[in-house]
Nucleic acid binder design. Sequence first.
DNA 1: CGTGCCTTTGAAAGAGCTCAATCCTGGTGG
DNA 2: CCACCAGGATTGAGCTCTTTCAAAGGCACG
Lengths: 238, 238
Amino acid sequence: MLHGAAISTTQSLRPRAAFETRSTGRPGASIATIASTFKQQAGTTVFAEGERTEGLYEVVSGIVRLHKLMPDGRRQITGFLAAGHFLNLLLQDNFTHTAEAVTEVTLCRYPRTGFQRMVDQNPGLALRLLAATSDELRAAQDQMLLLGRKTAAEKMASFLLAMAELQDDIARGNVVQIPMSRGDIADYLGLTVETVSRTLARLKRDRLIALTSPTEIELLDRDRLEELAAGELAESCR
Amino acid sequence: MLHGAAISTTQSLRPRAAFETRSTGRPGASIATIASTFKQQAGTTVFAEGERTEGLYEVVSGIVRLHKLMPDGRRQITGFLAAGHFLNLLLQDNFTHTAEAVTEVTLCRYPRTGFQRMVDQNPGLALRLLAATSDELRAAQDQMLLLGRKTAAEKMASFLLAMAELQDDIARGNVVQIPMSRGDIADYLGLTVETVSRTLARLKRDRLIALTSPTEIELLDRDRLEELAAGELAESCR
DNA sequence: CGTGCCTTTGAAAGAGCTCAATCCTGGTGG
DNA sequence: CCACCAGGATTGAGCTCTTTCAAAGGCACG
C-alpha cells in the first residue's frame, strides 16, 4: 500500500514471479500453472465490494486504488497499490473493497481453487503472504495516525513523500508523478478536493514544492517536507 | 482489534492455547514449552514504540490499547485488543506501537527465538498467524473509513456497537462496559475528549443511549445506532 | 474533607467544508 | 487549423463542525 513507512520496494517480489515455488526446493507444482495475466484500462473496475471473491491478484504494473463506500457516497480510499503488491490478501468469501485501475494496469490472477491447496502444501508461500499482509497492516496503521491526527498540510506532505518513495527506482531528481486525480487524493487523505488544491497551493507558496502540471510535482525541500509530514514543524507552517 | 466488522469471538483461539501444535499431528515441540504467562496492572506499559521486539504476545484476559505518538504528543490509538488477539503480529525488529494495559491484563509471551523456528517447522502456525493478521488488517481498513469519513456521532455509534459486540458473550441486555477513559476513546476515534463527551450527551438526549455511569452505557435503540454508524441517518441526527 | 483526576459544560475560534464561479487542458468536430 | 466542449483543477466567500480555552462538577483516595 502506498504509505511512507510501508513502502519497501525491496519487499516487492517482482519482477520474478512472486509465487514461484522453487525457493522451497519442491519440484513442479509451480504456481505459474494456475496463474493468468491480463490488462485493464485506466478507470475500469477490477472487482467490487460485496462480490464473491475469485482469488488473489498481484499488481504487475500500473497503479490500483482500493476504496470503501458509505451509502450516501462518501468514499475512503484505503490504499494505492503498485507493482508487487497484492489485492484481496484477506482471502475472504466476499471482497471488502472495490478495486479500480488508476492507470492502465497489468494484473496477475491466482484463482481461489488450487491456490488454497498450494498454500497448504507450501509453507514458504504462507510465510510470504504473511509478510505481505503484515506490510499492508503496518501501512494501514500509519494511515490511521494520518487520518486521525494530522493536519491537511501534514497529510499532503506525507502523501507526496510516499509517492516519491514509490517512484524512487525510476526517479529523476525530485519530480514526482501523480497519476491519480485530486478527488482520489482527497478520498485517500480524508479531505475534500478543494482542500487538497488549496493545500498544494500553500506548499507551493511556501516554496516546499513546485507544480509543473496537475500530474507532476517537484519536491523543492525534502527535509522540510519530511519534518512537516512527521508533525515536527511549528504550527505556523502546518 | 476492536472494530465492528472485525470482531469475531469465534476467531479467538482461546481458551485453549492458541498455538498448540497438536492440530498438525506433530508430536512434541509444543509451543507451550516456550511460552510464558504473566499479568500487568491497569495503566502499565507492555512495550514501547521503538524498543527492540522480544516476541509475540497473546492477550489472555483484560484489554490492551495500542497507540502511536507524534513528536508534539498527538496520539492515535490504533486498536483495543481483548482476549484471543495478538500484539506485535508484524514480527519486525522494533515495535511500531506502544502497548499499554487498559485494565489488568493477563498476557502470554512467545519469545522470538524458538518461535521463528517453530513457525518454519509448522505450516499450520503460519496460516493461523496469517488469519489473525488478516483480521487486524480488515479492522484497520474499516477504521480508516471511520477516521477519514465519519462524523463524530457516527464514530461514537460505531465504537459503542463494537464494544457491545466485543462483550456479547458476557452480555447482559444492552449494557456496555467502557473500561477506557474518554481520552482513550477520543484518541481512538480521532476526536477530542470534549467532543466525545458532548457527542455522548447528544446521543443520550436523542434517546439512543443512557449513561448509567461514565464506564457503563446502555444502548436504548440498537437499530438506529446501527443506521447511524453506517451513515444511513439523515444529517439531522448525525 | 481536602486534593487530584476525569468528565462535563460553556463560549469563542478556527480548520476544513460547502456552494459557486472561473480557469485550464485535452479531445472533438467543423 | 482552430473554435468548442466537458471534466478536472483552482480560487473565492461564507459557514459549520470540531477544536480550543476555560471553568465547574463529580468521584475516589488519602
